[in-house]
Design a protein around this nucleic acid. Structure first.
Lengths: 131, 131
DNA sequence: ACTCTTCTCCTACATATGTAGTATAATAGC
DNA sequence: GCTATTATACTACATATGTAGGAGAAGAGT
């Protein structure tokens, strides 16, 4: 199998911010998204609306009007978008070598012992080739 | 220690392409950069020039004119830029959790046994707290 | 019914990014 | 010395991204 259905246009910085809210929650209105944003990411209400509409245009969200209000829900899974973005990032920054990224990452982040255990676990599985 | 000297403006996609060439090599002219680019990244000669100049403007490159020709060299280390970009990326896409990124990464990339060993090694060191 | 609030829809605009053309200067070959 | 090549400096322009204002509809409170 190798037909990787490619996602829509890549997400821009603030588009990620919006999408993260909706993926964390579910179907949300502009107001709800706005209220869920942390203080440093607050924007004008109509700015949120603009992004929501652009994301519909790009095929990331669908809109459903209930009464007077539009609700927006994700139509692409976070997983697939994250996968695509990670790939792009690795290509851009680590010249395609994900293991180079891993090698960079591990010593440079704070991992607690539980996380370290978890990663060991994953490595074991990767080694055995469990999918 | 906590004064992280923040890099200039973030690099855009094609700016990364250019910077990677220069980091891979060293001081290069526009023509040299152009010739070093893989076929799918070929652009008009003046496009390369434009990027080089923008990168000087952003503080990533310095320009030295030798005879008629400008040569461009990096003034920020690849490491620091990669570090910054990785941070931004992790924040954007993995909501700040690098271990979540690791958890995503490990099962999703092909690691050969040498790389797996290397990462185990790194985990051991991280655990012991060797800097 | 009138007013305040809160939506939606549409429009606008600055800055960033991708992409390259033109005019002009220097140089290398005949 | 004239011509072809190649480099620089400057200008241009489309699309993307960040950001938001205004007009007008709908509903809430009195």
């Amino acid at each position: 199998m190798s037909h990787k259905k490619s996602n829509p246009d890549p997400l821009s910085k603030f588009e990620w911010t919006i999408m993260n809210q909706i993926w964390d929650g579910s179907r949300m209105s502009a107001r709800e998204v706005m209220e869920a944003l942390p203080p440093e990411k607050q924007r004008a209400y109509t700015t949120i609306q603009t992004y929501l509409e652009r994301l519909v245009g790009k095929g990331y969200l669908e809109k459903e009007k209930i009464g007077m209000v539009n609700f927006y829900g994700a139509v692409v899974s976070r997983e697939s978008v994250v996968a695509g973005a990670t790939n792009n990032f690795v290509n851009q920054v680590f010249a395609g070598s994900a293991s180079r990224l891993a090698a960079y990452l591990i010593p440079n982040i704070d991992l607690n012992s539980k996380e370290i255990e978890m990663i060991r676990q994953l490595l074991d599985e990767a080694e055995r080739g469990d999918a």
